[in-house]
């Protein structure tokens, strides 16, 4: 009986620990997306691109998360371990995902061990908003132990840690949440123009939410937030030779 009581007490303690976090302790990806859980700060989140070709989309999504997680002009660290042919991060493109590129410390490294070392070094610095560990291809050293270490360091210094893996399958890790990001056909504003960056995001792991759900979302640069992908619909071109009213009348006459 005593043991049962103890267990109950322990469970209550755990429940109180995972009580709803305050808004400042989480990063909301966008208010309009129903059911999309916010990411808590000071812990580790993983983002996967299953195929190498999906790496730009996943990187773009993580860039969006970094810009959402940024606060009070604090700097972020982006440690990147990727082959040259994957392309180099481009400042103006990061600006397109809401990041002020001047607030980013970019560190390309040769191997994943160096990437982990640099990331741990960054996590020990309480002045950073977030740390991105961007490793392309398989990373055997980024295992349960390494991610656990990252998680502890992130919790201690309050730095949001984002692990970005391109072209690999998820492996066991201590990350709090895990997401799979793939490119999605953008919502064209018509005239077969490409629209905003669009993503198909699947939640693979979450401590409290149901997993397996997916969202189709796009990056809205105006509000600097993720939003539901707008449906593709043709937009009437503006008349250039008459006023709006005339144009409307002529349309009605035709009908």
């Amino acid at each position: 009986m005593d043991r049962a009581h103890d267990a109950l007490g322990r469970l209550r303690a755990i429940a109180s620990m995972s009580a709803p976090l305050m808004a400042s302790e989480t990063v909301s990806l966008g208010g309009q997306l129903s059911g999309l859980p916010a990411l808590s700060r000071s812990t580790v989140h993983e983002f996967f691109a299953l195929r190498k070709e999906d790496a730009p989309a996943t990187t773009g999504f993580v860039a969006g998360v970094v810009s959402r997680a940024g606060r009070e002009s604090r700097l972020s660290l982006w440690v990147r371990c990727a082959p040259l042919r994957a392309g180099a991060l481009y400042g103006a493109g990061l600006a397109g995902m809401g990041i002020n590129p001047a607030t980013l410390i970019h560190l390309p490294v040769d191997n994943e061990k160096d990437a982990l070392r640099a990331a741990l070094e960054g996590l020990r610095c309480k002045g950073l908003a977030s740390v991105v560990i961007d490793i392309a291809g398989p990373a055997p050293h980024l295992d349960l132990t390494a991610t656990r270490r990252l998680k502890l360091a992130a919790a201690e210094h309050g730095v949001t840690t984002l692990i970005l893996r391109a072209g690999t399958d998820p492996s066991p890790s201590a990350a709090q949440t895990r997401w799979q990001v793939a490119p999605s056909l953008s919502a064209s504003p018509g005239l077969s123009l490409p629209g905003n960056p669009a993503f198909a995001v699947t939640l693979l792991k979450h401590p409290s939410e149901g997993t397996g759900r997916s969202w189709e979302m796009e990056w809205d640069h105006e509000t600097r937030a993720f939003a539901p992908k707008t449906l593709s619909r043709p937009v009437a071109s503006l008349p250039f030779d008459r006023t709006h009213r005339e144009a409307g009348e002529s349309l009605r006459a035709r009908a």
Binding site: P56, A63, R85, A88, L89, A92, G93, L94
Partner: peptide, 13 residues
């Protein structure tokens, strides 16, 4: 950025 055309996230060099 203003109304400038978008730029890519990765530049191939």
């Amino acid at each position: 950025m203003g109304t400038k055309p978008p730029r890519p996230l990765f530049l191939l060099s």
